[in-house]
Amino acid sequence: MTTLFQAPGACSLAPLIALHIAEIAHDTVNVDLRAHKLADGGDYFAINPKGAVPALKVDDGEVLTENAVLLQYIADQAPASDLIPVSGLERYRQLELLNYIATEVHKGFGPLFNPATLPEARQTANDALGKKFTFLATKLQSNGFLAGAKLTAADAYFFTVLRWTDMFKIDLSPWPAIVAYRQRVASQPSVVAALKEEGLGG
């Protein structure tokens, strides 16, 4: 059985959404990221030495980490789901989006999660994220989702990190396409199911 190690509210929501889109049977295990402990008291470092979520234990017992990799792995287990195209330039365009979200958007929130970050640095981080949102909004002007008319791995990831704007009180109104997009993704049955399983709701 595929097992996802997750923390509610963390970036592990992205592969959880992907597992629902792909209709892959799975278990989830919550991780206390402060203590790096599992619910049963087990040492999470023994599963993922990086100490972060997500981690995905696959059927043969191997453990994979890093969101962009997990999303590719899940997509490849269920090619009919169209999470990521199986070949051709469109596959690389999707991977391009995944890596942009991972390295520019996801990591762009890093200073905001650090309580020691000074107000000026927080504003700089907010401004930088705004530029990333402006770029991604252009992808939505003619498409319902980032890569076309269907929910993909890139949407699972971008939607997940977009939810952090609530935590940090980032106003998305300058990007109406993103506001509408977030609502559109949140209403997808696979996303509703993943949010319910995560335990935090929409």
Rank of each mutant, 00 (worst) to 15 (best):
L4Y: 08
L4C: 02
L4Q: 03
F5A: 09
Q6K: 08
P8N: 04
A10L: 06
C11N: 11
L13D: 05
L13T: 06
P15Q: 06
P15M: 08
L16D: 05
L19N: 11
L19V: 10
H20G: 07
H20D: 09
I21L: 11
A22W: 04
E23S: 14
E23C: 09
N30P: 08
L33A: 12
L33H: 12
A35R: 14
A35Q: 15
A35F: 12
D40L: 06
G41I: 08
G42H: 04
D43P: 01
D43S: 12
F45N: 08
I47S: 01
P49Y: 08
P54L: 01
A55L: 01
A55Q: 03
V58N: 05
V58H: 07
D60I: 00
D60S: 09
E62M: 09
V63F: 10
L64G: 03
T65S: 13
E66L: 03
N67L: 07
L70H: 07
Q72D: 14
Y73M: 03
A75L: 00
A75K: 05
Q77S: 08
P79F: 02
A80W: 00
S81R: 00
S81I: 00
S81A: 15
P85T: 10
V86L: 07
S87T: 13
L89M: 04
E90M: 11
R91W: 03
R91K: 15
R93C: 03
L95E: 05
E96V: 00
Y100R: 14
I101F: 06
T103A: 13
E104R: 12
V105L: 08
H106N: 14
K107Q: 10
G108N: 10
G108K: 05
F109C: 01
G110K: 02
P111I: 02
P111H: 01
N114P: 00
A116V: 07
A116W: 02
T117C: 03
T117Y: 07
P119M: 04
E120R: 12
E120P: 06
E120C: 04
T124A: 15
A125K: 00
A125G: 02
D127K: 13
G130Y: 05
K131Y: 00
A137L: 13
T138I: 06
L140N: 02
N143C: 10
F145W: 13
F145I: 13
L146R: 10
G148V: 10
G148A: 07
G148S: 10
K150D: 12
L151E: 01
A153F: 01
A154E: 03
F158G: 03
F159P: 04
V161N: 07
L162V: 02
R163I: 02
W164Q: 01
D166E: 13
K169N: 12
S173K: 10
W175E: 11
I178F: 05
V179G: 05
Y181P: 00
Y181L: 02
Y181H: 06
R182S: 07
A186T: 08
A186I: 06
Q188V: 09
P189M: 09
S190C: 07
V191W: 02
A193K: 15
A194D: 09
L195T: 05
K196M: 03
E197V: 01
G199D: 08
G201I: 15
G202L: 15
